[in-house]
Structure formats: C-alpha cells, structure tokens
C-alpha cells in the first residue's frame, strides 16, 4: 500500500510536466502579447522601441526554449515568478484568492454531499413513487439551471423580500467565521445545488443497482435491520461511483467558478484565471493551469485511496 501511494505521488511529476509544456506552448500560440495589451489599454501611441524594451524586461525577447527552461528552473525551486501584469509574486496573488476558492469548493461539496446522498438513496428506495419523481425533478432542475442564474435569483430574492444583501467583501473564516459564512453560504448553495444534481442521479442509480445484488438478499435473510442492510451493505458498495463524481467536481470548482464569482463579487481563482488569460499574463496563467491540474491529479489520488479503503478487492491487488 505504501509503495502504491509512493508510486502514485511520483507519477504526478511527469503528468504535471506534460501539462506545463502544453500550456506554455498554447499560450504563446495565442495572438497578441501582454505588452501590446497593456499599451492598447491606455489608448496612447507607443513606439516600437518602447514595446521591445518592455518585452526585454519581461524576458519575452529570449528564445522559447530559454523562457521555458528558466520557468521550469524557477518551479523546481518553488519560485513561480512575478505576475507580468501586476508585478507582484504569483504565489502571493494566488494565495490571497486560494483561501476563498478552496473554502467555497469545500462548502459547495458539503452542500452537494448532504443533498445528493440522502436524496439519491431515498429516491432509489421509493423508486417510481412521488418521492422518486420529486427527487428526479429536483435533480434535473439542478442540472438545467446555471448556478450563476440561481445565484442572481438568490441575491434578488434577498433584496426584494428581506431587503438584505449578503456581504460583498470577503472576510477570512479565521478572522470572523460568522461574516465569512454569511457571505459564502449563498454561492456555496447555488453551486452545490447544481453539483448535487449529478451526484444525486448517480447515487440513485448506484443504490438501485446494488439493492438488486444477491448479497443484499443475503443480508435480509440474515435478519438484519433494514437500516443496517441499507447503510452497511448497500451504501458502502453504492458510494464508489458517487465518490468519483464528487471528486472530479471538486477539482473543477477550484478554478472553474468564473461566473458565480462575478455574481457574488468574489475575488477567487476563477476570476484571476480569466483576467490573466485576457491580459496574456503568461506566468500567471501557467501557474494557474498547473495549480488546477495539480488539484485534479491530487483529488483523483485521494479518490483512489478512498476506493481502496472502501473496497478490499482494490486494496489487495
């Protein structure tokens, strides 16, 4: 098992390296560069020499391989460089936003898990009754309603009916948990609802499938309480596919909540991502892509560990 964990951790390195090469090249294929965009924004005329000088300052005049290697050399020393746009260290720029994005992703996941597992199980147990229909409509609605729209509706609902607006400035959880939660619970609900839709449907079908298994009949024949049959025997088996879905969604949430962040005025990783791409902020975008890839790989790793923990057939291979 330890060997397996070590192997998985080491395998992350070539994967991330591949991602690094790809994002580096793709960014440079995109037309325009940060210097042009900076000056285009001011509306003033800038002579070519000024632009070239700026480029030289950012190291953009060097050959591609040189740029890539020096970037890589930095990463090895955990030095991601400075943002080409703001000039501040990238680790700082990401760090101040990561807390928010991570917290939001965790809360949305919590909302999704708390909604989807009970609802999906209930729907499976009451298959083809009004409970099941209700859950299915609820989850289809979740799939079809974009979370930013739901976010807008939540905000408007508060404004119109309670004349109250969720706080618009971020307070760290460690500073004031109450203020922090009153701000983040609403985007977490909006995102978590959509997120739960997929997981609910997954839970429902997995539980339905497992309930038809022979070992469930055995469990009942042993005279176990229905509650035990459901939790110990059915859910433990049914959760495997659900965990995969939840894990992948979680990784997506870290960098993918662009519009929801806009709606709730949250300065998170998603927003930073879009900004840095439109500004051709190469160093920032590269670092963000690496961060998101790392989250995906890491979450997958955790999911695999959970699998092994839940299913002995995997553990002993």
């Amino acid at each position: 098992m330890h060997q397996y964990i070590l192997k998985r951790l080491l395998l992350m390195i070539p994967t991330l390296l591949g991602v690094a090469v790809l994002v580096f090249l793709m960014l440079r294929v995109a037309p325009g560069d940060i210097v042009e965009l900076k000056y285009a924004g001011t509306g003033a005329f800038a002579p070519k020499e000024v632009l070239d000088q700026e480029r030289a300052q950012l190291g953009l005049d060097k050959p591609l391989w040189h740029q890539f290697l020096s970037w890589m050399w930095g990463i090895v020393r955990f030095d991601f460089g400075n943002s080409m746009w703001t000039g501040r260290p990238i680790t700082y720029e990401i760090w101040i936003r990561l807390e928010l994005s991570l917290e939001l992703a965790l809360m949305a996941t919590l909302v999704a898990v708390l909604l989807s597992i009970p609802l999906g199980t209930l729907a499976a147990l009451k298959q083809d009754t009004w409970v099941d229909y209700f859950v299915r409509i609820f989850s289809i609605a979740g799939l079809s309603i974009p979370s930013f729209w739901l976010g807008i509706i939540i905000i408007l609902g508060f404004l119109i009916f309670v004349k109250w607006l969720p706080p618009l400035t971020f307070t760290s959880f460690w500073v004031d948990p109450k203020a922090n939660l009153t701000q983040l619970i609403w985007p977490a609900l909006a995102v978590g609802y959509r997120y739960s839709a997929v997981a609910t449907r997954m839970t429902r079908s997995a539980v339905l499938e497992v309930l038809r298994e022979d070992y469930i009949r055995t469990a009942r024949a042993k005279g176990l309480w229905e509650r035990v049959v459901l939790t110990r025997h059915a859910l433990k088996n049914a959760l495997l596919p659900v965990i995969t879905v939840i894990g992948l969604e979680f990784a997506f949430l870290i960098g993918g909540l662009v519009v929801t962040e806009q709606v709730f005025n949250l300065n998170g990783i998603g927003m930073l991502f879009v900004e840095s791409i439109t500004r051709r902020d190469y160093t920032m975008t590269q670092a963000l892509v690496l961060l998101v890839s790392f989250s995906f790989i890491f979450v997958n790793f955790i999911v695999d560990l959970l699998y092994a923990w839940l299913d002995p057939r995997i553990r002993y291979q």
């Binding site: 042993k222 005279g223 229905e226 110990r232 025997h233 299913d311």
Partner: peptide, 28 residues
Amino acid sequence: EEEMRRIRGAEIAMIFQEPMTSLNPVLS
C-alpha cells in the same frame, strides 16, 4: 416486519445458490 426479521436468520436461515455473489465483497 419486525417479527419476521427476528425469525430470519435466527429461526429460519437460508443458503443461496451463488456463493460468488451472495457475500458482500466489501465486508470481512
């Protein structure tokens, strides 16, 4: 239901045809 549960396994037990699928794979 509860009276019947107390009989299952305790008074009347059952052995099934498929030993490969009749035991829960994730429990010892």
